[in-house]
């Protein structure tokens, strides 16, 4: 199951990014009397502190969108079926907002 594997990697990614952020925060408080270097590090760190966790959050968000959207299309064994694809065609005609609300770009009309 693809999303189960992504979830495991996503969990590890979030933890590693969180650890990196915590270590960076700690480093920022360890410059002692080196005030100039502390300022320079703070300037370096501030716009980068949240990047790893933001990426981890995006992986989660994308997975959630795929799961929700796939639910519209897939059958129980996780494979897209012809019937589900047909359903999608009819869905596109009238329910483009359903996909747009899930983060997809403009859905072409048939």
């Amino acid at each position: 199951m693809v999303l189960v594997d992504v979830a495991a990697d996503g969990q590890s990614l979030d933890k590693a990014a969180g650890d990196a952020a915590a270590a960076g925060e700690q480093a920022a408080s360890l410059f002692g009397s080196a005030v100039d270097v502390a300022d320079a590090f703070a300037g370096f760190w501030s716009p980068r502190r949240d990047v790893g966790q933001r990426i981890a959050g995006l992986v989660y968000g994308k997975s959630r969108v795929v799961a929700e959207t796939a639910e519209l299309f897939v059958d129980a064994d996780g494979q897209m079926s012809a019937a589900a694809a047909d359903f999608a065609e009819s869905l596109n005609a009238g329910d483009a907002p359903v996909l747009a609300a899930r983060g997809f770009g403009p859905v072409p009309q048939p």
Binding site: D14, G57, V59, Y60, G61, K62, V65, G103
Partner: peptide
């Protein structure tokens, strides 16, 4: 791409 419409939680609840 695939930006969720709802805001993301601080810690992803995998």
């Amino acid at each position: 791409l695939l930006a969720a419409s709802a805001s993301l939680p601080a810690a992803p609840p995998w």
